[in-house]
Amino acid sequence: MDNSLTYHTFLDFPDHSFFSMGIIVPQKIYTALVPFQAQPSIAFVENGHMGVRLENALNNHFEALEDPASTPLVTDKSRVMYRVLWPGYEPWSDSSHIVDNSGLPISRARLAFSVARIVQKFMSDVRYVGSSELRPDWWVENVRYDALYLVELRHVSTGSWQPVLRLAF
């Protein structure tokens, strides 16, 4: 990803074939206030396509998720902050545990579940908040949760990750 960009877009991805199935939610990219060492993005692939359906993740349906048991390195902390910068809404964030009860990092499947829950909470929190977005297609009340996919998580600051989401057509 080119750090000079200000939005997540389909141009960030070398394989554009999955865009026949939707569009990247045009979130602004969160800008860290202090320098940090960025970690690689964590990609999610389901049925050979970029992105895991949030509804599947929320319902623990991971049969089609690639490498669900792997434990992607997120941080050495026990919690991370997830940041959502949805078009037309104030920046929103919430934190979640990224270690299990034994202190080990959570799996890719559990990470997808955690993000799915965070995005659902975001949508619930802002559903009745006015949007400054001129395009009503991006107003949260007009977006179906079951049409959203988690494409990847991007490390945007120390302890903070931003989900890149795809809206299916």
Rank of each mutant, 00 (worst) to 15 (best):
M1N: 09
L5W: 11
H8Y: 15
H8N: 14
T9Y: 03
F10H: 08
D12L: 06
F13H: 15
F19R: 00
M21C: 10
G22C: 08
I24V: 15
K28M: 04
V34W: 05
P40K: 07
P40D: 09
A43L: 14
A43Y: 12
F44I: 09
V45S: 06
G51Y: 06
L54D: 01
L58Q: 03
F62R: 00
A64N: 09
E66D: 08
P68M: 00
S70V: 15
T71G: 09
P72K: 13
L73G: 07
K77L: 14
R79K: 15
M81S: 05
P91H: 12
W92T: 13
S95Y: 10
V99G: 03
S102N: 08
P105Q: 02
R110A: 01
L111R: 01
S114L: 12
V115A: 05
A116D: 00
A116M: 04
I118D: 00
S124P: 04
V126A: 07
V129W: 06
G130L: 09
S132I: 11
S132N: 12
E133R: 10
E133Y: 10
R135G: 03
R135A: 11
P136K: 13
V140Y: 06
V140L: 05
R144L: 14
D146A: 08
L150A: 03
V151T: 11
E152R: 14
H155W: 07
V156D: 03
P163L: 04
R166T: 03
F169H: 14
